[in-house]
Amino acid sequence: MTATDQIQTNTSGTAPARGLYAMAEALPLVLTFRPNWQLRSLVLRVLGAAMVLSSTGIWLMPGAAYDPEMALIKIGVSIFFLFAGIALMMINDPDSHPDAYFDPIRRELRVLQRSNKGRPRTVLRRGYDSLGSVRFKDRSVELFEIDGSLLIRLPINVGTTRQLLRDQLSGVVPILS
C-alpha cells in the first residue's frame, strides 16, 4: 500500500520568509493511506457486485428440477457468493484507511481512524520524546520503540515530505541511517 502525501498549507497565504522548511515547525504533517492501485479497487468492486448478483441468479438457471440435494448445494453456494461479494465490495473502502499526523507544536504522532459515523478517532498518540528512534528508507519511514521494536511503518513518496518529517524529528528523536 502506498501513501498519498499531503502537506497542509497555510490558509492565510502568508508563509514565513525562511522558506518551506520553516513551515514544518508550525504545520502538522499528514500522511493519508490510499489503495496503491485504483484499478484493483474497481475490479474488486465489480467482481463483488457480480458475485452478489450471481448469488440470486443461481436460482434462475435451469437444471435439476427441484432435487433436494441440489437445492441444498444451491443454498450453500448462494450464501457463500453473497458474503464473499459483499466482502470484495467493501475491502478497499477509502474511509477505512487511517491518517498519521505529525504535530510539531504538540510534538506528537497521532494516528486517526474514522468511525462508522465518519468522525475521526485517535487510535495511537505518542509524544516525540517517547519514541526510541526513526529510520528513513527509500519509500517509507519506520518509527521504533525505546526497546528497539518496530512501532509503525509509514509509506511516503514525496522527497519534500521526507525532508519535512526529518526536520520535525531531528533533535528530538534519534535518526538511524
Rank of each mutant, 00 (worst) to 15 (best):
A64Y: 09
Q8A: 12
E145D: 14
L29K: 00
D93N: 14
R18K: 12
T161L: 01
L151Q: 04
L82M: 11
P120L: 01
M23L: 04
F102L: 02
N92C: 12
F144A: 06
E142A: 14
I75A: 14
T161F: 03
L176D: 11
G159M: 05
A87V: 10
L39I: 07
D99M: 11
L151S: 03
R135D: 08
T2D: 10
S54P: 04
A84H: 12
V158T: 10
A26D: 11
L150V: 05
K137R: 15
A22V: 02
G171W: 05
E145Q: 10
Q113H: 08
P68W: 05
E142H: 15
K137Y: 15
V111K: 00
S54H: 07
V158R: 15
S54D: 05
P104D: 00
F102H: 02
D103R: 04
L165S: 01
E142F: 15
G85E: 04
G118A: 01
A26L: 15
R40F: 15
G148K: 06
E145G: 07
T56C: 07
I156L: 05
V158S: 12
V46P: 09
K137W: 14
D95K: 13
R114Y: 07
G76H: 07
L53H: 05
S149H: 09
L131S: 03
T14I: 12
S140K: 10
N36Q: 13
D99T: 11
L29H: 01
V30E: 03
P94T: 06
N92I: 13
I105E: 06
M51P: 04
P104H: 00
L164Y: 02
R153G: 07
R162F: 04
S55W: 01
I146D: 13
Y21D: 03
I146A: 14
P68D: 04
A87H: 15
P35N: 10
Y66W: 11
A50R: 07
R107G: 04
F144N: 05
A84M: 11
L154K: 00
T122E: 05
T122G: 09
D103K: 03
V123W: 06
E69N: 15
M1S: 13
L164E: 02
F83C: 10
A50V: 07
A71L: 12
R139L: 14
V46I: 15
G76S: 11
T4H: 14
G57E: 03
V158H: 14
A87E: 05
T122H: 09
G13M: 01
V52E: 00
R114N: 05
G171S: 05
P155V: 03
V172H: 12
G48Y: 02
L131K: 04
V30A: 05
L169D: 01
R135A: 14
L72H: 08
M1N: 15
M90P: 09
Y66Q: 09
L169W: 00
A24L: 00
E145S: 15
S170L: 08
